[in-house]
Design a protein around this nucleic acid. Structure first.
Lengths: 222, 222
DNA sequence: GGTTAGTGATTGTTGAACAATCAATCGAGT
DNA sequence: ACTCGATTGATTGTTCAACAATCACTAACC
């Protein structure tokens, strides 16, 4: 029904443009810091300038783009401070969600599915997919808290973190170690040991943060 | 420099319109559920339809407005579920921020200033101002965590909660009891008893939630 | 060489126009 | 009288074209 080859899930044209840009962003097709010209992008995506501006506004709220007045919009460059902040928030929210969740929460099915998907993608050496599955696993952990607001916050944080991952290469190094750890966390949680699961998760997140920060510092010595 | 009587802090016209709408919303000038016609509002605020749409988009992201496709934007009606969610998030974030904050955090000055402002407004019987000051107090507590993401989340949550307050009348009943409690929390925190302060705050938030939920149920028996 | 004026390009904003969609009115048929 | 359906009207969604405002870069000038 659409004039394009891809059928989107959203309805609005601005939503479609935003989704398309999101894909380009996580695929690494747009480098952080790059400036996005309104006219160029609008005719590349086949939407008007006004509509594209709405899409830009959305992605700016998701912290994927930054908007400098009278200078244009740029692909966000995740700062070290922002990454550290993200991990602080993740430890705070994920651990508490895990700790104070009843035993058989429906979201645990999402956790299991994500974990198995990550294992499959690992065996297929598709590390981008492993990253996606890992993020879905953590998103499911947050869902244990049954809070719309936290879910939404976490979605934003994930997108921003994903941008930071794109800044670094060697995705295998970034994602491989955590597939088995996810399995361990899930096992403890399903066994009823929420506190234990939360504790393992906290160590896990601290390790992950150290890894990312080190890779970041190694790659961008500035 | 401006053609209007009010000088805004923002620069963009859309920001100005959004800020103006925000004021109308917290002042209760726009009732929850009310539909906002694009043409009507745009000529009332003196901005173009396109610009107003950008403002609408912002406020929709802040959950102050809801957007129904092809039906228009409406002032959000805070649901009971949303209020409960907000308090869950508040307990989680505020208590942990208070508990795990070093003793002499700069944000404690904001806490003190907000508390004193609330006391002054209470003595002047200005309960809307008391509500504003109380929210600033809690915003300062969140700032103890030194997290941009949490600050931003809390700003959204506050605005939404404020909308819920507007739904209820008798603001004195809603705000008076908490001025002294804020003072108690601050005193404990400044004395170095972070855990005690967090504990008092948790009870405080549970009580506040019960009060609001009860008032909500009383007023909207639906 | 440093400063300043100018110039070009891009963004910010507006207005008008048309298509798409929803809601309500009105009418036909039973 | 009631239900179902089509027409109409209004509002939103999107595009286009135009102009004002601002920034970055260039080049002249001291």
């Amino acid at each position: 029904m659409a004039q394009l080859d891809e059928a989107e899930d959203s309805n609005s044209r601005a939503d479609q443009a935003a989704e398309q840009l999101r894909r380009l962003l996580i695929a690494g097709d747009l480098v952080p810091g790059q400036r996005l010209s309104e006219t160029a992008v609008s005719e590349r995506l086949g939407v008007s300038r006004n509509t594209l501006r709405e899409a830009f506004r959305m992605l700016t709220h998701e912290r994927l783009l930054v908007h400098k007045p009278h200078a244009g919009v740029f692909v966000a460059v995740p700062s070290l401070a922002s990454i550290i902040d993200i991990y602080r928030v993740r430890r705070m929210i994920e651990c508490q969600a895990l700790r104070s969740s009843p035993a058989r929460h429906p979201a645990s099915r999402r956790m299991r599915a994500a974990m198995e998907s990550a294992q499959a993608s690992r065996d297929a050496d598709d590390w981008l997919a492993v990253g996606t599955a890992n993020m879905e696993f953590h998103s499911a952990i947050v869902a244990l808290a049954d809070s719309d607001h936290l879910d939404r916050l976490y979605a934003n944080i994930s997108a921003e973190l994903r941008l930071a991952f794109g800044l670094l290469d060697d995705p295998e190094y970034l994602h491989r170690p955590y597939v088995d750890r996810n399995a361990a966390v899930l096992e403890l949680y399903l066994a009823g040991d929420s506190a234990g699961a939360a504790s393992v998760l906290e160590d896990y997140l601290l390790l992950s943060e150290r890894t990312i920060v080190a890779a970041y510092a190694r790659q961008l010595p500035a």
